[in-house]
Amino acid sequence: MADRPDTVFRTEGLTKVYDTGGAKVHALAGVDLELYAGELSVLLGPSGSGKSTLLNILGGLDHATGGRVWFRDLELTRLGDRALTRYRRNHVGFIFQFYNLVPSLSARENVQLVTDVAPNPMDAAEALERVGLKHRLDHFPAEMSGGEQQRVAIARAIAKRPEVLLCDEPTGALDSKTGVQVLEVLREINDEFGTSTVVITHNAGIRAMAHRVVRFADGRIASVEVNDTRVAPHEISW
């Protein structure tokens, strides 16, 4: 990391309150955080600690209740729906636990969904090749294993050459072997393109591959630790 790290995301006193008829749930209770360019950070924490809420707000899927969020110089908390859509389209790649592929489109077509609308995309076949699915281009989701489907989702996320990659439990539905494959792809993308990557996980083992680990508890950041020595995904104990 450089001395004056290049900041991608910055939050200031970020809060999110869910008003569920009477009882107010503070999903985020004042979060101040900076995430840097090229960094692979892992958000750890129990269910309901606010990590997914943060990821959704960073990705422009959800609105904050209070506080401010910047993506570089762009203040996300001031954007309307239309502008957030444009922001997602141009800058963000998402990866979810349950892949969320379109079942009626083949692997290649699922990636083309993105490459058709992004300003500077890579070729869909190239993106799939990068995740090791060159031979599965024309297969439909129903014809692929979970690991393969998740890799298609990664290909779809990276095909637009996003500046940030937001991953919510990307290995949550996978066994250890395929989980490792997926993590390796994420690591490669991060190394090669310098894409800032945020990974949410329950799996504490994964933290070993991150530059930084942010721990959440009760909607607040409990601790931030920097990994001096990162471990390769295949060395991670599941």
Binding site: R82, T85, N100, V102, L113, V114, V117, R156
Partner: peptide
């Protein structure tokens, strides 16, 4: 629902 939400997340507009 899921498929259409995915498209929205990928950056497709409501109209699209």
């Amino acid at each position: 629902a899921r498929e259409l939400a995915s498209l929205r997340i990928l950056g497709f507009t409501r109209a699209e």
